[in-house]
Design a protein around this nucleic acid. Structure first.
Length: 283
DNA sequence: AAATGGCTCAACCGCGAGCTC
DNA sequence: CGAGCTCGCGGTTGAGCCATT
């Protein structure tokens, strides 16, 4: 029997966060199970994925839900049930875990209270929330198309790669949708991480432009997907520990290039700042 | 000041879907 | 077709914080 290597559990330390972020910036996300070993982390792949998705990923808003966001969650929970990822997809910058926590700790009680109050009052206002949805504050969000309205799979070819090198970028759940006309929508993907989302100290010197980019990518004949890359300075200001030199970090955390040891998978894609496009190391 | 209880939220766990071989 | 693997989702837990007694 193979002994399982020691895997740390519990709260992440700033040093572990630093290692994970530094590794993902340099090598991208290729295989969550293998990545911790290469990044010098004694964590499970699941733990790394969770930490990245719920905390370290750029453009994440945490805590301080606005009243409008809360009303949207309540409405969507009523409509979709506890499908937190689907609800998160309709609330840009919010994670499913955060929404789930918000519901379980605050909103569920509020809804129960409201139901009790409404049950004890007159029945003349008993028309369903569904029927009134067009009047409430979240109607704008609810009337937009969802990923289900866009072609499957929810992915697109890398427009910067060589034509004979088809690559698929997996797209984050968090996005918004722009209505260009009654029949045409664009997906806006504010959470798609690029080097521009990270502080300058974490970029690769002058080989990478720190300015944001704005791209429209054809998905197929019917849709276009627009990437809007914004810096998230406020977010990264909070992570003061990251204000150190990336190259030092990477060497400190014993990060190892995965390129020589990986099986081919759909996740083997990373950003090459030297060539300024996403590449598959095995092609 | 210490004890207690409630709340928040980061993190873990188990399971199912999807993919590859 | 089935086994093995990775990933993502939703339910749950528990540490830490804060208010109250």
């Amino acid at each position: 029997m193979v002994r399982q290597p020691y895997q740390k559990k519990g709260t992440w330390t700033p040093e572990e966060d630093q290692k994970l972020v530094a590794y993902i910036i340099r090598y991208g996300i290729w295989n969550w199970n293998e990545m911790p070993r290469f990044a010098g982390l004694q964590r499970s792949g699941k733990s790394c994925r969770l930490r990245w998705m719920n905390y370290l990923r750029p453009n994440i808003k945490r805590g301080n839900f606005t009243r409008e966001e809360e009303e949207t969650i309540i409405h969507l929970q009523k409509k979709l049930g506890n499908r937190w990822s689907a609800i998160a997809a309709r609330l840009p910058h919010r994670t499913d875990n955060d929404i789930k926590n918000c519901w379980n700790t605050r909103l569920k009680k509020r809804v129960i209270l409201q139901n009790n109050n409404s049950a004890s009052t007159t029945t003349e206002t008993s028309s369903s929330v569904e029927e009134n949805s067009s009047d409430d504050g979240c109607s704008a969000l609810l009337n937009t198309p969802t990923t289900a309205d866009f072609p499957e799979p929810f992915a697109y070819s890398n427009p910067f790669s060589p034509s004979d090198c088809h690559q698929t970028l997996e797209v984050d759940n968090s996005y918004s949708i722009e209505e260009n006309s009654p029949d045409a929508y664009s997906l806006v993907l504010p959470n798609f991480p690029t080097m521009a989302d990270f502080p300058e100290s974490l970029t690769y010197g002058s080989t990478f432009s720190s300015s944001g980019c704005h791209q429209t990518v054809e998905v197929d004949n019917s849709y276009s997907m627009k990437e809007t890359f914004d810096s998230s300075e406020n977010y990264w200001e909070k992570l003061s520990f990251l204000e150190q030199q990336l190259m030092t970090d990477v060497s400190d955390c014993e990060a190892v290039s995965p390129s020589s040891q990986l099986r081919h998978s759909r996740h083997e894609l990373y950003y090459d700042p030297a060539d300024d496009f996403w590449v598959n190391p095995l092609i």
